[in-house]
Amino acid sequence: MKSFIGKRAIASAISLVGLVILVFFLSRLTGDPTDLYLPIDATQEMRDKFRELHGLNDPLIVQFGRYVWDLLHFDFGDSIRQARPAMDVVLEGFRWTLTLAVITMTLVTVAAIVIGSLAAFKVGGVFDRISSFFSLIGASAPDFWIAIVGIVIFAVQLRWLPTSGTGTVWHWVLPIAVLFIRPFGLILQVVRGSMITALSSAYVKTAKAKGVPPRPIIFVHGLRNAMLPVITVIGDQAAGILNGAVVVETIFGFPGIGKLMIDAILQRDFAVILAAIMVSAVAIFIMNLLIDLAYAMLDPRIRY
């Protein structure tokens, strides 16, 4: 088990290094931040000073060397725009996104598992109809459209919810609701399919022959067996949100890592881009590890 985690960590670290190199040079291709931060009529002297201050005068390779050297000392550089450590800026945004992801995915998982299981138990019943309705919406309606329609109806017309920003609990409702729909529809379908297989299995027949009532048959006998494919999809969807729910965060003015990344790219705030990418990469690594551990926990036949 320990060696498994170790191997995975090493493999992930190698990909991370590759990612850092790629992003470092690609982001520099977008241009010189000086043009963005200084007024158009800034003097050459001011420009040189700005470049000097942010280390933009040296050849790229030197800049990269310095960046790596600082990285090894856990210094991720400073944000040009906010003039404070990039990592602080990123972690602040990441906290928002993580909270958003955890709340959304918890709701999605619970709802999808319960409704999907009940749909599988009675194919063609009420829950099965709910499940096909949501998966159709999730699969076909673009999230930016749902977000805008949500704002028009609930914020502008009905005035029940705020349009954007943070502050109260009500600010969370629309972003979560919009983020909920796609993964919910998808996971629901996976749960349903996987549960239909599990519930028609031989061990469920045995459970019925033992006199086990329907509820434990679904949620004890069926569900645990049906969870493996479901977990994979949950992880995949959670990664999507963690990586920055860019569209939703932008529309709702939500200060998460997705919005931060978009802003940082537009503003050529290189240190922030890199720090944000590293944070979400580590988060996704940890989540994949948790998924693998969950596999082993759910199915005794899987051992690392």
């Binding site: 031989a202 045995t206 033992k210 006199g211 009532p213 645990r224």
Partner: peptide, 24 residues
């Protein structure tokens, strides 16, 4: 259900698939 397992019990052809793989 109150009879199944208690008064009338059943065993099947392929015990591997008829036992739940994830419980002891």
């Amino acid at each position: 259900r109150s009879l199944n397992g208690k008064r009338i019990a059943m065993i099947f052809q392929d015990p591997l698939s008829h036992l739940n793989p994830v419980y002891t």
